[in-house]
Design a protein around this nucleic acid. Structure first.
Lengths: 231, 231
DNA sequence: CGGCTTCTTGACTGGGATCAAGACCTGTGG
DNA sequence: CCACAGGTCTTGATCCCAGTCAAGAAGCCG
Protein backbone atom coordinates (compact mmCIF):
# COMPACT_ATOMS: atom_id res chain seq x y z
CA UNK A 1 0.00 0.00 0.00
CA UNK A 2 1.47 3.29 -1.10
CA UNK A 3 1.53 6.33 1.03
CA UNK A 4 0.25 9.62 -0.40
CA UNK A 5 -1.83 7.99 -3.06
CA UNK A 6 -4.15 10.57 -4.56
CA UNK A 7 -7.84 10.26 -3.92
CA UNK A 8 -9.94 9.89 -7.01
CA UNK A 9 -13.18 11.78 -6.70
CA UNK A 10 -15.35 8.70 -6.91
CA UNK A 11 -13.95 7.08 -3.83
CA UNK A 12 -13.56 10.02 -1.49
CA UNK A 13 -16.38 11.68 0.38
CA UNK A 14 -14.35 14.86 0.66
CA UNK A 15 -13.32 15.17 -2.96
CA UNK A 16 -16.46 14.11 -4.75
CA UNK A 17 -18.53 17.01 -3.45
CA UNK A 18 -15.89 19.71 -3.62
CA UNK A 19 -15.97 22.45 -6.22
CA UNK A 20 -13.20 21.86 -8.76
CA UNK A 21 -11.29 25.02 -7.92
CA UNK A 22 -10.90 23.90 -4.35
CA UNK A 23 -9.53 20.42 -5.06
CA UNK A 24 -5.88 21.58 -5.39
CA UNK A 25 -6.18 23.12 -1.94
CA UNK A 26 -7.54 19.81 -0.64
CA UNK A 27 -4.66 17.93 -2.23
CA UNK A 28 -2.20 20.31 -0.63
CA UNK A 29 -3.74 20.13 2.84
CA UNK A 30 -4.65 16.51 3.29
CA UNK A 31 -2.24 14.06 4.81
CA UNK A 32 -2.47 10.42 3.83
CA UNK A 33 -1.15 7.65 6.03
CA UNK A 34 -1.37 3.89 6.35
CA UNK A 35 -3.00 2.41 9.46
CA UNK A 36 -1.97 -1.14 10.31
CA UNK A 37 -4.47 -3.84 11.18
CA UNK A 38 -5.67 -3.28 14.72
CA UNK A 39 -4.15 0.20 14.93
CA UNK A 40 -6.13 2.66 17.00
CA UNK A 41 -6.49 5.81 14.93
CA UNK A 42 -7.97 7.83 17.74
CA UNK A 43 -9.58 7.01 21.04
CA UNK A 44 -12.48 8.35 23.09
CA UNK A 45 -11.42 11.42 24.95
CA UNK A 46 -8.50 12.26 22.68
CA UNK A 47 -8.33 15.94 21.82
CA UNK A 48 -9.79 16.71 18.42
CA UNK A 49 -7.42 17.88 15.72
CA UNK A 50 -9.10 16.91 12.49
CA UNK A 51 -11.29 14.64 10.46
CA UNK A 52 -10.62 11.42 8.56
CA UNK A 53 -11.56 9.73 5.31
CA UNK A 54 -11.01 6.11 4.32
CA UNK A 55 -9.42 5.76 0.94
CA UNK A 56 -8.81 2.04 1.14
CA UNK A 57 -9.46 -0.53 3.86
CA UNK A 58 -11.92 -0.77 6.71
CA UNK A 59 -12.23 1.03 10.02
CA UNK A 60 -14.56 0.34 12.94
CA UNK A 61 -16.04 3.24 14.85
CA UNK A 62 -16.83 2.17 18.38
CA UNK A 63 -17.73 3.38 21.84
CA UNK A 64 -16.52 1.74 25.01
CA UNK A 65 -18.35 0.78 28.16
CA UNK A 66 -16.34 -0.62 31.04
CA UNK A 67 -13.00 -2.23 30.57
CA UNK A 68 -14.08 -4.91 28.13
CA UNK A 69 -17.36 -3.87 26.59
CA UNK A 70 -17.94 -1.83 23.51
CA UNK A 71 -20.56 -1.13 20.90
CA UNK A 72 -19.49 -0.84 17.29
CA UNK A 73 -21.40 2.10 15.89
CA UNK A 74 -20.53 1.59 12.25
CA UNK A 75 -17.88 0.48 9.82
CA UNK A 76 -16.20 3.01 7.54
CA UNK A 77 -14.94 1.55 4.29
CA UNK A 78 -13.84 2.95 0.95
CA UNK A 79 -14.84 6.57 0.51
CA UNK A 80 -16.31 7.01 3.99
CA UNK A 81 -15.81 9.83 6.45
CA UNK A 82 -15.17 9.26 10.13
CA UNK A 83 -14.30 11.34 13.15
CA UNK A 84 -16.98 13.79 12.02
CA UNK A 85 -18.69 13.85 15.37
CA UNK A 86 -16.24 16.56 16.25
CA UNK A 87 -18.53 19.01 14.52
CA UNK A 88 -21.02 20.82 16.69
CA UNK A 89 -20.78 22.62 19.96
CA UNK A 90 -17.96 22.27 22.48
CA UNK A 91 -16.42 19.44 20.53
CA UNK A 92 -12.93 19.33 21.92
CA UNK A 93 -12.62 15.58 22.36
CA UNK A 94 -13.60 12.63 20.21
CA UNK A 95 -16.68 10.96 21.69
CA UNK A 96 -15.83 7.65 19.98
CA UNK A 97 -12.84 5.54 19.02
CA UNK A 98 -11.69 4.43 15.59
CA UNK A 99 -9.65 1.29 14.94
CA UNK A 100 -8.43 -0.13 11.63
CA UNK A 101 -9.76 -3.65 11.02
CA UNK A 102 -7.30 -4.24 8.22
CA UNK A 103 -4.42 -2.31 6.74
CA UNK A 104 -6.05 0.90 5.56
CA UNK A 105 -5.11 4.03 3.70
CA UNK A 106 -6.47 6.98 5.61
CA UNK A 107 -6.75 10.60 4.56
CA UNK A 108 -6.51 13.18 7.31
CA UNK A 109 -7.59 16.80 7.13
CA UNK A 110 -7.09 19.16 10.02
CA UNK A 111 -10.10 20.87 11.50
CA UNK A 112 -9.24 24.38 10.44
CA UNK A 113 -8.89 23.49 6.80
CA UNK A 114 -11.97 21.30 6.92
CA UNK A 115 -13.99 24.20 8.24
CA UNK A 116 -12.68 26.38 5.43
CA UNK A 117 -13.73 23.68 2.97
CA UNK A 118 -17.26 23.73 4.32
CA UNK A 119 -17.45 27.49 3.89
CA UNK A 120 -16.13 27.39 0.33
CA UNK A 121 -18.24 24.44 -0.80
CA UNK A 122 -21.92 24.82 0.02
CA UNK A 123 -22.58 21.68 -2.00
CA UNK A 124 -20.21 19.77 0.21
CA UNK A 125 -21.93 21.07 3.33
CA UNK A 126 -25.24 20.02 1.83
CA UNK A 127 -23.95 16.53 1.05
CA UNK A 128 -22.54 16.23 4.55
CA UNK A 129 -25.89 17.30 5.95
CA UNK A 130 -27.65 14.60 3.90
CA UNK A 131 -25.13 12.02 5.04
CA UNK A 132 -25.78 12.95 8.65
CA UNK A 133 -29.52 12.74 8.11
CA UNK A 134 -29.09 9.20 6.77
CA UNK A 135 -26.83 8.25 9.66
CA UNK A 136 -29.30 9.66 12.11
CA UNK A 137 -32.17 7.71 10.65
CA UNK A 138 -30.11 4.55 10.86
CA UNK A 139 -28.96 5.33 14.41
CA UNK A 140 -32.55 5.80 15.52
CA UNK A 141 -33.55 2.49 14.03
CA UNK A 142 -30.68 0.82 15.82
CA UNK A 143 -31.66 2.46 19.10
CA UNK A 144 -35.15 1.09 18.81
CA UNK A 145 -33.77 -2.34 17.94
CA UNK A 146 -31.39 -2.35 20.90
CA UNK A 147 -34.29 -1.45 23.16
CA UNK A 148 -36.88 -3.90 21.85
CA UNK A 149 -35.57 -6.43 19.34
CA UNK A 150 -34.29 -9.76 20.69
CA UNK A 151 -30.65 -10.69 20.17
CA UNK A 152 -31.32 -13.11 17.34
CA UNK A 153 -32.98 -10.39 15.32
CA UNK A 154 -30.16 -7.98 16.05
CA UNK A 155 -27.57 -10.47 14.84
CA UNK A 156 -29.67 -11.05 11.72
CA UNK A 157 -29.88 -7.30 11.20
CA UNK A 158 -26.13 -6.97 11.68
CA UNK A 159 -25.46 -9.62 9.02
CA UNK A 160 -27.87 -7.98 6.59
CA UNK A 161 -26.21 -4.60 7.14
CA UNK A 162 -22.77 -6.10 6.59
CA UNK A 163 -23.90 -7.71 3.37
CA UNK A 164 -25.40 -4.43 2.17
CA UNK A 165 -22.31 -2.45 2.99
CA UNK A 166 -19.62 -4.89 1.88
CA UNK A 167 -21.39 -7.05 -0.69
CA UNK A 168 -20.39 -10.61 -1.44
CA UNK A 169 -17.25 -11.92 -3.08
CA UNK A 170 -17.00 -14.57 -5.81
CA UNK A 171 -17.41 -17.37 -3.27
CA UNK A 172 -20.68 -15.88 -2.06
CA UNK A 173 -19.25 -14.84 1.28
CA UNK A 174 -20.04 -11.48 2.74
CA UNK A 175 -17.00 -9.51 1.75
CA UNK A 176 -15.63 -8.76 5.22
CA UNK A 177 -13.77 -10.86 7.72
CA UNK A 178 -15.01 -10.04 11.16
CA UNK A 179 -14.17 -11.75 14.42
CA UNK A 180 -17.10 -13.11 16.40
CA UNK A 181 -16.16 -10.59 19.05
CA UNK A 182 -16.62 -7.70 16.63
CA UNK A 183 -19.84 -9.16 15.28
CA UNK A 184 -21.05 -9.37 18.88
CA UNK A 185 -20.07 -5.77 19.59
CA UNK A 186 -21.81 -4.68 16.41
CA UNK A 187 -25.03 -6.50 17.33
CA UNK A 188 -24.82 -5.33 20.94
CA UNK A 189 -24.51 -8.76 22.53
CA UNK A 190 -21.86 -11.02 24.09
CA UNK A 191 -19.44 -13.28 22.33
CA UNK A 192 -21.05 -16.47 23.67
CA UNK A 193 -24.59 -15.44 22.83
CA UNK A 194 -23.66 -14.52 19.28
CA UNK A 195 -21.86 -17.83 18.94
CA UNK A 196 -25.00 -19.71 19.93
CA UNK A 197 -27.26 -17.62 17.74
CA UNK A 198 -25.01 -18.05 14.71
CA UNK A 199 -25.07 -21.81 15.33
CA UNK A 200 -28.85 -21.80 15.37
CA UNK A 201 -28.88 -19.95 12.08
CA UNK A 202 -26.56 -22.54 10.57
CA UNK A 203 -28.89 -25.31 11.80
CA UNK A 204 -31.80 -23.54 10.20
CA UNK A 205 -29.74 -23.22 7.00
CA UNK A 206 -30.19 -19.49 6.81
CA UNK A 207 -26.46 -18.88 6.79
CA UNK A 208 -23.22 -20.77 6.25
CA UNK A 209 -20.20 -19.87 8.32
CA UNK A 210 -16.69 -21.13 8.55
CA UNK A 211 -14.41 -19.15 10.76
CA UNK A 212 -14.75 -15.48 10.03
CA UNK A 213 -16.39 -16.03 6.67
CA UNK A 214 -20.16 -15.96 6.44
CA UNK A 215 -22.56 -16.56 3.57
CA UNK A 216 -26.23 -15.76 3.71
CA UNK A 217 -28.20 -18.53 2.05
CA UNK A 218 -31.71 -17.57 3.01
CA UNK A 219 -32.11 -13.81 2.99
CA UNK A 220 -35.87 -13.94 3.51
CA UNK A 221 -35.61 -15.99 6.67
CA UNK A 222 -32.90 -13.71 8.00
CA UNK A 223 -34.97 -10.69 7.16
CA UNK A 224 -38.00 -12.20 8.89
CA UNK A 225 -36.01 -12.32 12.12
CA UNK A 226 -35.61 -8.56 12.02
CA UNK A 227 -39.31 -7.95 11.63
CA UNK A 228 -41.76 -7.13 14.30
CA UNK A 229 -44.06 -10.12 14.57
CA UNK A 230 -46.52 -8.43 16.90
CA UNK A 231 -47.65 -5.93 14.34
CA UNK B 1 -53.10 29.91 21.58
CA UNK B 2 -53.35 31.91 18.37
CA UNK B 3 -53.05 30.41 14.98
CA UNK B 4 -50.62 31.99 12.49
CA UNK B 5 -48.53 33.64 15.16
CA UNK B 6 -45.32 34.90 13.62
CA UNK B 7 -42.08 33.22 14.58
CA UNK B 8 -39.52 35.48 16.15
CA UNK B 9 -36.04 34.63 14.98
CA UNK B 10 -34.83 33.63 18.42
CA UNK B 11 -37.27 30.83 18.92
CA UNK B 12 -37.35 29.27 15.49
CA UNK B 13 -34.67 27.00 14.09
CA UNK B 14 -35.73 27.86 10.57
CA UNK B 15 -35.79 31.63 10.92
CA UNK B 16 -32.77 32.27 13.06
CA UNK B 17 -30.31 30.99 10.46
CA UNK B 18 -31.99 32.34 7.36
CA UNK B 19 -30.59 35.27 5.42
CA UNK B 20 -32.76 38.32 5.99
CA UNK B 21 -33.85 38.62 2.38
CA UNK B 22 -35.34 35.17 2.50
CA UNK B 23 -37.40 35.62 5.64
CA UNK B 24 -40.41 37.13 3.85
CA UNK B 25 -40.48 34.07 1.59
CA UNK B 26 -40.43 31.88 4.71
CA UNK B 27 -43.29 33.86 6.23
CA UNK B 28 -45.29 33.46 3.04
CA UNK B 29 -44.67 29.72 2.71
CA UNK B 30 -44.93 28.40 6.22
CA UNK B 31 -48.22 27.20 7.62
CA UNK B 32 -48.78 27.41 11.36
CA UNK B 33 -51.28 25.22 13.12
CA UNK B 34 -52.17 24.17 16.64
CA UNK B 35 -51.76 20.53 17.63
CA UNK B 36 -53.90 19.35 20.54
CA UNK B 37 -52.51 17.37 23.43
CA UNK B 38 -52.02 13.79 22.31
CA UNK B 39 -52.52 14.64 18.66
CA UNK B 40 -50.47 12.57 16.24
CA UNK B 41 -48.79 14.99 13.85
CA UNK B 42 -47.48 12.29 11.58
CA UNK B 43 -46.94 8.58 11.93
CA UNK B 44 -44.34 6.08 10.79
CA UNK B 45 -44.88 5.16 7.19
CA UNK B 46 -46.88 8.27 6.32
CA UNK B 47 -45.80 9.79 3.02
CA UNK B 48 -43.47 12.73 3.47
CA UNK B 49 -44.76 16.14 2.51
CA UNK B 50 -42.73 18.56 4.58
CA UNK B 51 -40.85 19.47 7.68
CA UNK B 52 -41.96 20.86 11.04
CA UNK B 53 -40.82 23.36 13.66
CA UNK B 54 -42.11 23.81 17.18
CA UNK B 55 -42.92 27.37 18.00
CA UNK B 56 -44.58 26.68 21.33
CA UNK B 57 -45.28 23.46 23.20
CA UNK B 58 -43.70 20.04 23.27
CA UNK B 59 -43.64 17.16 20.83
CA UNK B 60 -42.33 13.63 21.28
CA UNK B 61 -40.57 11.93 18.41
CA UNK B 62 -40.92 8.19 18.72
CA UNK B 63 -40.54 4.90 16.94
CA UNK B 64 -42.83 1.94 17.43
CA UNK B 65 -42.10 -1.72 17.97
CA UNK B 66 -44.99 -4.12 18.11
CA UNK B 67 -48.46 -3.03 19.03
CA UNK B 68 -47.66 -1.51 22.40
CA UNK B 69 -43.96 -0.80 22.53
CA UNK B 70 -42.16 2.32 21.49
CA UNK B 71 -38.92 4.17 22.05
CA UNK B 72 -39.03 7.92 22.43
CA UNK B 73 -36.12 9.24 20.41
CA UNK B 74 -36.26 12.82 21.60
CA UNK B 75 -38.49 15.66 22.65
CA UNK B 76 -38.85 18.73 20.46
CA UNK B 77 -39.70 21.88 22.35
CA UNK B 78 -39.60 25.59 21.61
CA UNK B 79 -37.56 26.38 18.51
CA UNK B 80 -36.84 22.78 17.57
CA UNK B 81 -37.07 21.10 14.21
CA UNK B 82 -38.65 17.70 13.70
CA UNK B 83 -39.55 15.47 10.82
CA UNK B 84 -36.13 16.23 9.38
CA UNK B 85 -35.25 12.58 8.87
CA UNK B 86 -37.00 12.93 5.56
CA UNK B 87 -33.79 14.38 4.19
CA UNK B 88 -31.45 11.95 2.53
CA UNK B 89 -31.91 9.27 -0.06
CA UNK B 90 -35.24 7.65 -0.98
CA UNK B 91 -37.01 9.38 1.85
CA UNK B 92 -40.62 9.01 0.81
CA UNK B 93 -42.03 8.00 4.19
CA UNK B 94 -41.46 9.23 7.70
CA UNK B 95 -39.36 6.69 9.61
CA UNK B 96 -40.70 7.94 12.94
CA UNK B 97 -43.86 9.32 14.51
CA UNK B 98 -44.47 12.67 16.15
CA UNK B 99 -47.09 13.30 18.82
CA UNK B 100 -47.88 16.50 20.70
CA UNK B 101 -47.48 16.09 24.48
CA UNK B 102 -49.31 19.30 25.16
CA UNK B 103 -51.15 21.84 23.06
CA UNK B 104 -48.46 23.07 20.69
CA UNK B 105 -48.04 25.66 17.99
CA UNK B 106 -46.39 24.00 15.04
CA UNK B 107 -44.89 25.55 11.95
CA UNK B 108 -45.02 23.50 8.78
CA UNK B 109 -42.97 24.00 5.64
CA UNK B 110 -43.41 21.84 2.60
CA UNK B 111 -40.48 19.91 1.30
CA UNK B 112 -40.06 21.77 -1.93
CA UNK B 113 -39.82 25.16 -0.29
CA UNK B 114 -37.56 23.78 2.42
CA UNK B 115 -35.18 22.48 -0.17
CA UNK B 116 -35.16 25.89 -1.85
CA UNK B 117 -34.39 27.43 1.55
CA UNK B 118 -31.36 25.19 1.94
CA UNK B 119 -30.05 26.20 -1.45
CA UNK B 120 -30.50 29.92 -0.79
CA UNK B 121 -29.11 29.88 2.77
CA UNK B 122 -25.73 28.15 3.01
CA UNK B 123 -25.56 29.31 6.63
CA UNK B 124 -28.79 27.55 7.37
CA UNK B 125 -27.52 24.35 5.74
CA UNK B 126 -24.39 24.66 7.85
CA UNK B 127 -26.39 25.10 11.06
CA UNK B 128 -28.58 22.16 10.16
CA UNK B 129 -25.47 20.09 9.55
CA UNK B 130 -24.11 21.05 12.98
CA UNK B 131 -27.43 20.23 14.58
CA UNK B 132 -27.39 16.80 12.95
CA UNK B 133 -23.83 16.21 14.13
CA UNK B 134 -24.94 16.95 17.70
CA UNK B 135 -27.94 14.70 17.37
CA UNK B 136 -25.79 11.95 15.98
CA UNK B 137 -23.34 12.17 18.84
CA UNK B 138 -26.19 11.96 21.30
CA UNK B 139 -27.83 9.08 19.42
CA UNK B 140 -24.61 7.12 19.51
CA UNK B 141 -24.27 7.64 23.21
CA UNK B 142 -27.82 6.44 23.71
CA UNK B 143 -27.17 3.39 21.57
CA UNK B 144 -24.22 2.45 23.73
CA UNK B 145 -26.29 3.02 26.86
CA UNK B 146 -29.18 0.89 25.62
CA UNK B 147 -26.71 -1.89 24.86
CA UNK B 148 -24.71 -1.82 28.08
CA UNK B 149 -26.07 0.46 30.80
CA UNK B 150 -28.51 -1.05 33.33
CA UNK B 151 -32.04 0.32 33.50
CA UNK B 152 -31.44 2.38 36.64
CA UNK B 153 -28.67 4.28 34.91
CA UNK B 154 -30.80 4.81 31.84
CA UNK B 155 -33.63 6.24 33.90
CA UNK B 156 -31.14 8.51 35.69
CA UNK B 157 -29.78 9.60 32.33
CA UNK B 158 -33.29 10.26 31.05
CA UNK B 159 -34.04 12.48 34.06
CA UNK B 160 -30.80 14.38 33.64
CA UNK B 161 -31.52 14.93 29.94
CA UNK B 162 -35.02 16.16 30.72
CA UNK B 163 -33.69 18.60 33.29
CA UNK B 164 -31.11 19.88 30.82
CA UNK B 165 -33.64 20.34 28.07
CA UNK B 166 -36.57 21.70 30.04
CA UNK B 167 -34.95 23.25 33.09
CA UNK B 168 -36.71 23.59 36.41
CA UNK B 169 -39.63 25.79 37.36
CA UNK B 170 -40.00 27.94 40.47
CA UNK B 171 -40.97 24.92 42.57
CA UNK B 172 -37.77 23.14 41.62
CA UNK B 173 -39.56 20.60 39.48
CA UNK B 174 -38.19 19.60 36.13
CA UNK B 175 -40.28 21.72 33.84
CA UNK B 176 -42.13 19.00 31.99
CA UNK B 177 -45.02 16.78 32.93
CA UNK B 178 -44.38 13.35 31.59
CA UNK B 179 -46.39 10.21 32.21
CA UNK B 180 -44.49 7.27 33.66
CA UNK B 181 -45.25 5.47 30.44
CA UNK B 182 -43.48 8.14 28.41
CA UNK B 183 -40.58 8.24 30.83
CA UNK B 184 -40.32 4.47 30.43
CA UNK B 185 -40.38 4.72 26.64
CA UNK B 186 -37.73 7.42 26.77
CA UNK B 187 -35.46 5.33 28.99
CA UNK B 188 -36.12 2.21 26.95
CA UNK B 189 -37.72 0.18 29.73
CA UNK B 190 -41.17 -0.95 30.88
CA UNK B 191 -43.70 0.98 32.90
CA UNK B 192 -43.38 -1.30 35.96
CA UNK B 193 -39.62 -1.33 35.97
CA UNK B 194 -39.44 2.45 35.76
CA UNK B 195 -41.95 2.69 38.55
CA UNK B 196 -39.79 0.54 40.81
CA UNK B 197 -36.59 2.34 39.86
CA UNK B 198 -38.13 5.74 40.50
CA UNK B 199 -39.26 4.49 43.92
CA UNK B 200 -35.73 3.38 44.73
CA UNK B 201 -34.45 6.80 43.79
CA UNK B 202 -36.99 8.41 46.09
CA UNK B 203 -35.89 6.09 48.92
CA UNK B 204 -32.30 7.09 48.29
CA UNK B 205 -33.40 10.75 48.32
CA UNK B 206 -31.89 11.46 44.94
CA UNK B 207 -35.20 12.65 43.56
CA UNK B 208 -38.63 13.73 44.76
CA UNK B 209 -41.66 12.81 42.72
CA UNK B 210 -45.35 13.35 43.05
CA UNK B 211 -47.40 12.24 40.13
CA UNK B 212 -45.89 13.47 36.93
CA UNK B 213 -43.78 16.10 38.65
CA UNK B 214 -40.19 15.27 39.47
CA UNK B 215 -37.46 17.20 41.29
CA UNK B 216 -33.85 16.18 41.31
CA UNK B 217 -32.42 16.70 44.77
CA UNK B 218 -29.09 14.97 44.42
CA UNK B 219 -27.65 15.55 40.98
CA UNK B 220 -24.30 13.97 41.80
CA UNK B 221 -25.84 10.70 42.90
CA UNK B 222 -28.02 10.62 39.83
CA UNK B 223 -25.05 11.36 37.63
CA UNK B 224 -23.03 8.62 39.32
CA UNK B 225 -25.66 6.11 38.21
CA UNK B 226 -24.96 6.98 34.60
CA UNK B 227 -21.26 6.41 34.93
CA UNK B 228 -19.33 3.34 34.07
CA UNK B 229 -18.08 1.95 37.36
CA UNK B 230 -15.85 -0.67 35.76
CA UNK B 231 -13.51 1.86 34.28
C1' DC C 1 -72.39 5.70 42.10
C1' DG C 2 -70.36 2.56 38.66
C1' DG C 3 -67.30 1.98 35.08
C1' DC C 4 -63.06 3.79 33.42
C1' DT C 5 -58.10 4.34 33.16
C1' DT C 6 -53.86 4.77 35.70
C1' DC C 7 -51.15 3.33 39.74
C1' DT C 8 -48.92 0.00 42.74
C1' DT C 9 -47.21 -4.21 44.15
C1' DG C 10 -46.13 -9.08 44.36
C1' DA C 11 -44.98 -13.44 42.00
C1' DC C 12 -43.16 -15.58 38.19
C1' DT C 13 -40.35 -16.29 34.04
C1' DG C 14 -37.03 -16.27 30.74
C1' DG C 15 -33.52 -14.25 27.75
C1' DG C 16 -29.22 -13.43 27.78
C1' DA C 17 -25.05 -12.30 30.55
C1' DT C 18 -21.66 -14.47 33.28
C1' DC C 19 -18.69 -18.06 34.81
C1' DA C 20 -15.99 -22.01 34.07
C1' DA C 21 -13.62 -25.54 31.80
C1' DG C 22 -12.19 -28.29 28.17
C1' DA C 23 -11.02 -28.47 23.03
C1' DC C 24 -8.67 -26.77 19.45
C1' DC C 25 -5.70 -23.99 16.92
C1' DT C 26 -1.07 -21.44 16.16
C1' DG C 27 3.26 -20.02 16.72
C1' DT C 28 7.85 -20.56 18.92
C1' DG C 29 11.95 -22.39 20.54
C1' DG C 30 14.60 -26.40 21.78
C1' DC D 1 9.49 -32.72 14.95
C1' DC D 2 7.64 -32.19 19.25
C1' DA D 3 6.35 -29.73 23.55
C1' DC D 4 4.49 -26.19 25.52
C1' DA D 5 2.27 -21.69 26.11
C1' DG D 6 -1.16 -18.33 24.75
C1' DG D 7 -4.81 -17.53 22.20
C1' DT D 8 -9.50 -18.31 20.37
C1' DC D 9 -13.43 -21.49 20.11
C1' DT D 10 -17.13 -24.24 22.01
C1' DT D 11 -20.23 -25.78 25.29
C1' DG D 12 -22.60 -26.52 29.60
C1' DA D 13 -24.22 -24.67 34.07
C1' DT D 14 -25.81 -20.99 36.65
C1' DC D 15 -27.61 -16.58 37.81
C1' DC D 16 -29.96 -12.41 37.76
C1' DC D 17 -32.01 -8.37 35.71
C1' DA D 18 -35.83 -6.80 33.89
C1' DG D 19 -39.97 -8.02 31.33
C1' DT D 20 -44.48 -10.21 31.87
C1' DC D 21 -48.63 -11.38 34.20
C1' DA D 22 -52.10 -10.63 37.47
C1' DA D 23 -54.86 -8.40 40.73
C1' DG D 24 -56.10 -5.07 44.01
C1' DA D 25 -56.07 0.16 45.07
C1' DA D 26 -56.75 4.56 43.93
C1' DG D 27 -57.94 8.32 41.30
C1' DC D 28 -61.30 10.28 37.62
C1' DC D 29 -64.89 11.28 35.00
C1' DG D 30 -70.00 11.18 33.25
Amino acid sequence: MKKNTQCDNQSCFLCRSCVKEWLPAVAANKKNFVAKKGQVIFSEGDPVTGIYFVYEGNVKVHKKWGADKELIIRFANKGAIFGHRILGKQASNYPISATALEESLICYVDMEFFDATLKVNPGFTYDLMLFFAEELKEAERKMRNLAHMPVKGRVAQALISLKEQFGTNEEGHVNIELTRQDLASYAGATYETVFRVVNEMIQETTIIANGKKISITNTDKLFALTQDTNL
